[in-house]
């Protein structure tokens, strides 16, 4: 199973959109995909319309109160491990109860899981304990980056975190940086993309996620963009990203 953690300290960079739609694009290609929502805001869970009212969520999994299969919500080739707002409290509790090895919590909770080709983890917009668990679980990071100036600060912080985790002995690779919300009409978008490629070379995905209304509209219908607007720009871009991820191996 290939594991990918979608992370960026900055909010609104396209993390949840990328986790959902990359997952959907891989599922469209027949891959079995597990989407893990590690964000207490539960954006991924809500954007796919998963009801968590009577079911355990990732929080119960992390505290050993539920088994993975009890919390899974199947949507065709996509399976969602949902989150709920209570995850914020659970994060604090895990930090109190296992201060030295909390980064391993998700890895342990999902150990031995079979039947999936991909597991994609959506992290909260912070570099706190939950993000750390997500990073350690996969050891492979996809960093969506808004093609704006402020987003570059967030990227630098994530890279610093990667170094810290590697120094602590956990294997960690950067699968790629994904330029998102790209607007070809603005010179800022063009410059950020161009310089990113010059500076970070093959660590930047060839695929660029262009700004698209359909990407913002799809969650309102509890859909991924490939189902919502199959021939739109957003669907096209995420299909291209899925192909690139598959080529990466």
């Amino acid at each position: 199973m290939r594991k990918i953690t979608v992370i960026n300290q900055k909010g609104g960079t396209g993390k949840t959109t990328t986790a959902v739609n990359l997952g959907a694009a891989l599922a469209e290609l027949g891959r079995e995909v597990l989407l893990v929502d590690l964000d207490p805001q539960a954006g991924l869970t809500e954007s796919l319309g998963v009801d968590t009212a009577d079911r355990p969520t990732v929080g119960e999994l992390l505290t050993g109160k539920a088994e993975p299969r009890e919390a899974f919500h199947a949507l065709g080739h996509l399976t969602v491990l949902p989150a709920s707002p209570g995850l914020a409290e659970i994060e604090k509790r895990i930090l109190r109860e296992r201060p030295s090895d909390y980064p391993l919590a998700l890895k342990e909770a999902l150990a031995g899981l079979r039947g999936f080709d991909f597991a994609i983890v959506d992290c909260p917009p912070s570099l706190g304990a939950l993000s750390l668990m997500g990073m350690v679980y996969s050891g492979s990071l996809l960093i969506p980056l808004q093609t704006h100036y402020m987003a570059l600060n967030g990227l630098e912080k994530v890279l610093g975190m990667v170094k810290t985790i590697r120094d602590a002995g956990f294997p960690m690779e950067i699968l790629g940086i994904l330029p998102c919300m790209y607007d070809v009409r603005t010179s800022l978008s063009r410059q950020v993309e161009e310089h990113l490629r010059e500076t970070l070379r093959d660590k930047v995905f060839r695929t660029v996620i262009r700004q698209s209304v359909s990407l913002a509209e799809a969650p309102a219908r509890s859909m991924d963009v490939l189902s919502y607007q199959p021939h739109g720009r957003g669907a096209e871009d995420y299909r291209a990203l899925a192909q690139e991820v598959l080529r990466h191996g």
Binding site: E156, L159, V162, M172, E198, T199, K203
Partner: peptide
């Protein structure tokens, strides 16, 4: 800013090439 990012990436791991 770009020089800082390049350095951060080098520190974070391998940049192929």
């Amino acid at each position: 800013k770009w020089e800082g990012l390049r350095h951060a990436m080098e520190e974070a791991g391998r940049v192929k090439g």
